[in-house]
Amino acid sequence: MSLLEAKGISKHFGGVQALQNVSLTVEPASIVGLIGPNGAGKTTFFNVLTGVYVPDEGTLTFAGQPLPAGQPHRVARAGLVRTFQNIRVFPQMSVLENVMVGFHGRTHSGLLGAWFNGPAVRREEREIREGAQELLKWVGLQEMARRVASTLSYGAQRRLEIARALATGPRLLALDEPVAGMNGAERGHMAELILRIRAAGIALLVIEHDVRWIAQLCERITVLDHGQRLAEGTSAEIQANPQVIEAYLGHGSHG
């Protein structure tokens, strides 16, 4: 059974048809690439997937269950989490607190817990803290735990977003242009991180403009153009596809 199955997704904004009949599947613990020129609808697809937008048409199935449309927190709790193209860490919280927020959906202490602050609550809080520190180590930010998130470099903020997303305990992690604006060495580090995440049994759906970078990472790639699925196939197939080359050259490519 596929982990994620999106069928016939359409979404429009006023006169703009941002997505039209787009389908895509992600197998468990695989890496899938989503590419396409600017304005192709990639981010919109993520927004529909994660419940930020409600699709006009189409169905979304995750691990055999329909995904709740328009309810981001329930999508996240179902195991599908994302990062944002225009980085959205909680800017004035510390790096550690950012990741601790990610644990919210998996922890339970409520109002009375906060007030009485009993042993169970304190233990949970300690577990959250230790878990968050563990994740920061994982993405290489352990030295920065106490820093205010907005003071981090661009690349570090991207990794923080990933750590925060991992804290929710996802089965599918969706990354929106995780290496945008990064140099070669940083791209290498990000690829290594992505492979490590996959090795931990988490599937990834990655948006990226740089076809070569994504091709070395992914099993399968889907290409969007003008809101429609232009092609789908293995990395090699996509790189050889004349339509894809045309679409990229026609729009002026990034990579």
């Binding site: 904004f13 006023g14 981010t43 930020v52 937008y53």
Partner: peptide, 8 residues
């Protein structure tokens, strides 16, 4: 009115 979702 048209419902325009916030751009994310």
């Amino acid at each position: 009115g048209r419902h325009a979702p916030e751009k994310v």
